[in-house]
Amino acid sequence: MSDHLILRIVGKFLIPYILLFGLYVQFHGDFGPGGGFQAGVIFASAFVIHTLLFGLESAERIAPQWVLKIVAASGVLIYALVGVAAMLMGGNYLDYDFLAADPIAGQHIGIILVEFGVGLTVASVMMLLFFTFAGRGEAS
């Protein structure tokens, strides 16, 4: 799509705002609609636009597949480890009350960390899926 000047300019202009909106949805999920899941999808869609405009190779230079694989796994790991941390501090699995001296603060820490893990995994898996599909389409 690199010969479509208008699409390329508008897309380039939109990408930073989409990334910013993704981060907003990620960290504003406690206060308004949203959370890690939606944020991850929005964040990944910026990379999808980049791939459509500048090609797969350019996108994979920014987000190499091996990095995405590690990020996808570490998101799940962060989530699971928050649960283990709660157990080590004396509570049940994923009982955030015990993550800090004050139960409410513990809940807030737990929710932010857990949502961060969700966002990492969703964003990187969505990007991996798209890159895999797009790469396959180019190959055949």
Binding site: G29, D30, I104
Partner: peptide, 17 residues
């Protein structure tokens, strides 16, 4: 118990963690 304004997030991330 959780004190986040959007209690959908509270349910999803904490009660139903």
């Amino acid at each position: 118990e959780i004190d986040v304004p959007n209690f959908v997030t509270a349910v999803l991330a904490s009660y139903r963690g």
